[in-house]
Design a protein around this nucleic acid. Sequence first.
DNA 1: TAGGCCATCTGGTCCT
DNA 2: AGGACCAGATGGCCTA
Length: 316
Amino acid sequence: MSEMVSVHGWMDEALSSQDEMKENSQRQSAYDMLSGLSHEEHGSIDGEEDEEEEDDGEKPKKRGPKKKKMTKARLERFRVRRVKANARERTRMHGLNDALDNLRRVMPCYSKTQKLSKIETLRLARNYIWALSEVLDRGQTADGKGFLEMLCKGLSQPTSNLVAGCLQLGPQPMFLEKHEDKSSICDSSLTSHAYSYQSPGLPSPPYGNIEAHHLHLKAPTFKTVVDPMVNHTLNCTTPPYDGALTPPLSISGNFSLKQDGSPDLDKSYAFRSHYPTLGLSGSHGHGSHFQTAVPRYEIPIDMAYEAYPHHTIFTE
DNA sequence: TAGGCCATCTGGTCCT
DNA sequence: AGGACCAGATGGCCTA
């Protein structure tokens, strides 16, 4: 790593002397161009083009594979390979970040300007799935505080406050922000599902706890929590997430429960039915919405056809 | 200024 | 050999 420091050091010097290198992409290109010399390059460079030459010096022979000399050709190949690997790694990480962005968009609080960190996004996603699965699975009616507690379990206090704030704002602000690039807005008054969940003994994540009294709750309004899917079920024409669909899940089966009724998050990711070959049934008077049989989980018909291309989908 | 978060580079490992 | 994935290291940026 000390080599990397030195490389960065002299590269920065080089970069500072070039006025045109101000954009990140340009900077990366420069890094890639200049970062050819690192590890292996400190080997012997004898200038020979014969890369298969053996080391037949007087030194005592060592075990193991013979080291090839660092010819210019080999050096160039190393450099090219490293540059390509760096580019691939950047692309890979960008893809990972894109996926995280897509995940952020379907979270109950999303803002382009105030993004959740990666770790908080993953934690909130887990909580969100957990909370929704509890709502679907138990179908209980309770206050929204429990739902919010589930959402914020283990999140940092700033994130918890953000989530709580989003939920307190009511549907419109959050909805507009989540769909600020969309032209049509569904009637959010129709989305007032009473989220009712009596929080069981909540699991204690290994990364800490946030108790409900940290959240400074007002009387909670949970209309917005469900907007991604509820909007679909209301014939909204602007799906909140247009990325690739993951396999449909049995929401009710995602979490195994501990004895106290709380989900065992360490063991609960064996999905019961990724691809339900049975139980695709008609909906219950919701027009062209698709409904799986076991979970009461509706998705719009176009998503259903995409998610279940090989199934017969019954609609009314 | 310390700490959190992030992007990037890098070398190692595994797989094709 | 080369690509994918991973984890460690590093430096930059931002905020309390």
